[in-house]
């Protein structure tokens, strides 16, 4: 029951504020509360090389690049220090199996931290 209800509630809350795409593995805290899934290239690890001189998106010139926004907000918002430090962490590939599920449940069950066995983080940890 909760498994069905929570995604609906989560989407209802997060869609209007962050244009949440329900990837099921939320990283908002480390991206200055800016959703990387709204980047047209769905990049999880920072801006592409096409960001325009005015800070707008290569693909949608009328939209600010979400990674420029994320960077500015990471610096200016009063977020916890560890969240800010996570801005440049290497985020693993999106697990497509979690699409549409509640990131809240996945956070509690730690399902969102499962990565493929071959995904060694640069410090050697998985």
């Amino acid at each position: 029951m909760l498994k069905k209800l929570l995604p609906v509630i989560e989407h209802a809350l997060k869609k209007p504020i962050w244009d949440c795409r329900m990837c099921g593995q939320c990283v908002l805290h480390s991206t200055g509360m800016t959703c990387p899934m709204t980047c047209p290239k769905t990049l999880r690890n920072g801006p592409c090389g096409g960001v325009r001189e005015d800070g707008n998106c290569e693909v949608k010139p009328e939209m600010p690049c979400i990674w420029v926004k994320a960077y500015d907000r990471t610096i200016s918002l009063p977020l916890p220090k560890v969240w800010k430090e996570h801005y440049n962490e290497l985020r693993p590939p999106v697990d497509m199996q979690l699409q549409g599920t509640s990131s809240w449940i996945n956070l509690v069950t730690k399902r969102d931290q499962q990565t493929p066995v071959g995904w060694a983080a640069p410090d050697g940890k998985h």
Partner: peptide, 11 residues
Amino acid sequence: FDIDSAQAINI
């Protein structure tokens, strides 16, 4: 864009 460049490098 299933993965991004940093992820591809790590793979």
